[in-house]
């Protein structure tokens, strides 16, 4: 029994080493942020999510879609938790194509809560053409689609720098410390006081990066808070029932003369 537990511990240690290894692989050491959604009880910072939505909407949304989010998500529990009225008002700022109507024509109408986020481009080809051949990736699951996750996106946003002397950049290509291959076709999207936060927070580049990454993390994992809550309960339950079963086992095995 003891040996068994020791080996289990050993296995878990090894898997942790792997974990470190995976992240150490990227070219530059990522900037670490003490995200509120990490850890066992991690939750999203509601105000940061709302600011993050503002950054997305005013900056990123001109090129990047989040096609798997719906406007209703903005009012759902565990998200930015805008009120339903606020979410409706946000949705109504966007035009969606609907139809065909009774005459067979397509028409536009203001978006409703049930609609998906409106994409800036009609299709991938248009998106590529408008961005010099580089497709601005959909950001719905972007945080999960990049090694290093939230830290990576945060680092990338703050990783723009002058290129070292030995790197030559073409037009429309920028140097970024954290990008794979260090070349990126997106110019630095954020700068101090680029926008004015509606809650009065000072819009530094770091602040906006942090907020928008928080928003993107939620967009990728909208049930993260529920997952953490459930996880805690499930593990507590499993520990308790394990203890109960252990004593039951001792009781049952005490009927015969043998060790377990």
């Amino acid at each position: 029994m003891k040996k068994f537990l020791k080996i289990l511990l050993f296995i878990s240690l090894i898997s942790n080493l792997n974990y470190v290894k995976v992240f150490a692989e990227s070219s530059a050491e990522l900037l670490k942020v003490d995200w509120s959604f990490k850890s066992f009880f991690g939750k999203f910072d509601r105000a940061s999510l709302q600011r993050g939505y503002q950054v997305y909407n005013e900056v990123c949304a001109s090129c990047h879609s989040v096609k798997y989010l719906s406007y209703r998500n903005l009012a759902e529990k565990g998200g930015p938790e805008f009120s339903e009225e606020e979410a409706k008002a946000i949705a109504s700022n966007f035009e969606v194509i609907d139809g065909p109507d009774s005459t067979g024509e397509m028409f536009t109408r203001p978006a409703r809560l049930s609609d998906k986020f409106v994409s800036p481009y009609a299709n991938d080809q248009e998106a590529k053409a408008a961005n010099g051949g580089a497709y601005p990736p959909d950001m719905s699951v972007l945080v999960k689609a990049r090694k290093g996750g939230a830290d990576y996106i945060y680092s990338l946003l703050l990783g723009y720098d002058d290129p070292p002397a030995d790197i030559k950049l073409d037009d429309g290509v920028y140097y970024n410390k954290y990008m794979y291959g260090n070349k990126i076709k997106m110019s630095s999207p954020l700068s101090d006081d680029l926008l004015e936060y509606s809650d009065g927070t000072k819009a530094t580049t770091e602040q906006m990066s942090k907020d928008v990454v928080t928003f993107l993390m939620w967009a990728a994992e909208p049930h993260l808070e529920q997952r953490h809550k459930f996880g805690f309960r499930v593990i507590i339950y499993l520990v308790i029932i394990s203890i109960l079963v252990y004593f039951s086992m001792k009781k049952i095995w005490s009927r015969i003369e043998s060790k377990i």
């Binding site: 308790i240 029932i241 109960l244 004593f247 039951s248 009781k251």
Partner: peptide
């Protein structure tokens, strides 16, 4: 005690 442990385990298991 034995009855209690086995009953509690069964009950907790059913809940789970």
């Amino acid at each position: 005690r034995r009855d209690f442990i086995l009953t509690a385990t069964t009950a907790a298991g059913a809940v789970g």
